[in-house]
Structure formats: structure tokens, C-alpha cells
Amino acid sequence: MQFSVKVTDYQKNIMLNICDVGLLGKKIIQDDLNMNISKNYYGEKLVDKEEAILLLKNSSIINMVGQQTISLSLELGIGSENGIKSISGVPFLIVFKM
């Protein structure tokens, strides 16, 4: 299992953008909502599950898209099912760790 990620330093916090590989480059539309899962935002590199786990655990701000990504995050106790939103059936979740 692979994930597409981009890691940046944002105001002295590690920000992780992570998505299911199969969603990279897709545009999702539902009514007036548009989500562009761009390579610029999510596609710095591909990582395996083990590296994704380390990144999820060590990041302060996480933008995630896709069923596999969010399932992994929830398994790690990061985020809540109550925070998951969906556009055209594609789930996304944003987490801020304090």
C-alpha cells in the first residue's frame, strides 16, 4: 500500500498533506464544492505504509484524502470519524494536533 505525501514546515509545525495514490491528480466535484487533489499539494513523493505511519504520528497539521489514508489515521487514533467529510463519496479529514 502506498500513499502520496507532501511535508512542509508551516509556522514551526510539520504539515502533512497525504492522500491515496489513486486519487492523485483527480478533481472531485459535488454541487458547488470542488476539490483538486493536485500533485503540487499532495504529490511530493510516494511512501509505503510504514513511512506514512511515522509521518502521521509526527505531524501537527494533517490534510488527508481517501479511504485508505483516513482508515490508517483512525487506526492510529489520529482524528475522529465525526470529523470526516465527503465530496462525491471521497472522504477527507483535517487534523490539528495540540
Rank of each mutant, 00 (worst) to 15 (best):
F3T: 02
S4H: 01
K6W: 03
V7Q: 14
V7K: 08
V7N: 08
T8F: 09
D9R: 14
K12P: 05
I18M: 14
I18K: 05
C19A: 13
C19T: 14
D20M: 06
L23M: 11
G25N: 01
I28H: 02
I29Y: 13
Q30D: 14
Q30R: 13
Q30G: 07
D31G: 11
D32E: 13
M35K: 10
M35V: 11
M35D: 04
I37E: 00
K39S: 13
K39I: 13
N40H: 05
N40Y: 07
N40C: 04
Y41T: 15
K45R: 15
L46A: 07
L46M: 12
V47M: 06
V47E: 01
V47K: 00
D48W: 03
D48E: 15
D48S: 07
K49M: 13
A52Q: 04
I53W: 09
L54Q: 12
L54A: 02
L55V: 06
L56C: 06
K57P: 00
K57W: 03
K57D: 00
N58Y: 04
N58W: 05
S59Y: 02
S60H: 09
I61F: 11
Q67L: 05
Q68C: 07
T69F: 00
L72Q: 07
L74N: 06
E75C: 02
L76S: 07
G77P: 02
E81N: 12
N82Q: 15
I84H: 01
K85N: 15
K85V: 08
I87H: 02
S88T: 09
P91Y: 01
L93F: 07
I94K: 08
V95T: 09
M98F: 05
